[in-house]
Structure formats: structure tokens, C-alpha cells
Amino acid sequence: MRVTFTVNGRRQEADDVWEGESLLYVLRERMGLPGSKNACEQGECGSCTVRLDGVPVCACLVAAGQVQDREVVTVEGLADFAKERDTGAAGPGTDPGAAQRWQPRPAGPATELSPVQQAFVDAGAVQCGFCTPGLLVAADELLERNAQPTDADIREALSGNLCRCTGYEKILDAVRLAAARTGTEA
């Protein structure tokens, strides 16, 4: 079947989608957006967390056909999404052709990060990084709802995102840091 939906601000189309495919598979294998991760595919790790019409969900548990005409934000679009939220300016979105041909580029000062992404880098919250995309989407949504969360709030909001490397301490640091920085700017 054909599925058409908006990803990171751009209309995208996938053809020949098998009806049993998940949104996660379509993002990763058909749209060149593998940032959402395939760690458990049963909703027990949060690594594939995306925003579906603004709501954080596990992309592995959304059937591809269910996202027809809906809006998805993935970690690849998080910086633009956050910027748009803060400034009201729409980001450029991700071009599907370009995404498919994508190659990593050297990270440098040119890379624009959202506050929560920057905080994860700065606080040492990234080790292997496989849980990071899902955590970023979840943490960004937490801070959108609750700009000054307590530690208990952070833990509850991120309790659906497993990390095997960090012991979560630096992740807490990162969310606190992002909250503090955003609070200072506001």
C-alpha cells in the first residue's frame, strides 16, 4: 500500500508498504530516517520514540497505515521542531531524496542542536548513543510540558526509555542542564 504523511515538516510518501510494517520500519528503511532506533520493537525501551501529532509514541507500535495524513517528528527533525516552537519559524524539513543519499558529515559548530540535544552532549549523557534519540524526543516533550521538572518528574517521564550504558545519572544531569539553560534564557 501507499502511505503518505508529514515527517519533520515535509510531506513524504512510501510505496509498496507491507501492511504489517511499523512506522519505525517505514522511517528507517523507506524514508532514510534511521535516527529512531530499533532496540526492542515491543514498546519496552523507548528507543524509537517519535512525536505523532505531537504525542510521544513508540514508532515500532504504530502500524504504517495508521500515520496516513498525520504528522511525525523524529530526532532528525528535533532541532528544527524546537526552533520552530521557540521562534515560530518553520524549519526546512528533510528532503526524502537527500535523506536516502545521506552520509554522515563531520560534526562541527555548524550543526545546530536543540537545547536538549546540546545538553546531552555537554553533560556526557551519550555513550553508545542507541537510546539517545528516543530519550531526546521524550525529554524535549517533558520540558515542553514542564519547564522546571523535579528529579522525580524527570524519572517518571523517562521511565519508558531504557539506557544500558550510563546508569541514567548523566541523563538526569542533561535534562536538568537543558531546563536550567532554557530557564535562564526565558
Partner: peptide, 9 residues
Amino acid sequence: VGSPQIRNR
């Protein structure tokens, strides 16, 4: 129930 993500769906 599950996680925040699961409770959203």
C-alpha cells in the same frame, strides 16, 4: 501501564 509512550497510545 507500560511507559509514558505506551500510555499515550
